[in-house]
């Protein structure tokens, strides 16, 4: 899974984060380093779709939170990916 929008949603699923915290988190759980341009491209798209929204900031760093709509989209994506993973595992076992 390397779609930046899904990675950002997955990162925000366990709490609000600003850009740098998302980059660090994504690198930790997915092993992918998102460049600043890619990260903010994803943030822009997700905010336009209403899947994330900014929350009160303490400094220049802007934290974001996942919305209910974003959480539902992430769940659908994860379920879909799970189905693919399970099918692939089953087929690998039977091969």
């Amino acid at each position: 899974m390397t779609d930046p929008t899904l990675l950002v949603l997955a990162s925000l699923a366990d709490g609000d984060k600003h850009g740098y915290a998302m980059m660090e988190d994504i690198q930790r759980f997915a092993g992918v380093r998102l460049g600043p341009g890619t990260l903010y491209g994803a943030i822009t798209r997700l905010e336009e779709r209403g899947w994330i929204r900014p929350v009160a900031a303490e400094d220049r760093r802007q934290p974001y939170t996942i919305t209910a709509l974003g959480r539902r989209h992430l769940e659908e994506q994860v379920n879909s990916l799970n189905a693919v993973v399970k099918a692939a595992q089953r087929r690998l076992k039977n091969a």
Binding site: G19, Y20, P36, L39, T44, D59, R60, Q62
Partner: peptide, 17 residues
């Protein structure tokens, strides 16, 4: 986004990529 984007750039170790 410029303010928060610049804040991010200050924190990241940037390279040519």
């Amino acid at each position: 986004y410029a303010m928060e984007f610049n804040a991010l750039l200050e924190e990241v170790d940037t390279n040519w990529k």
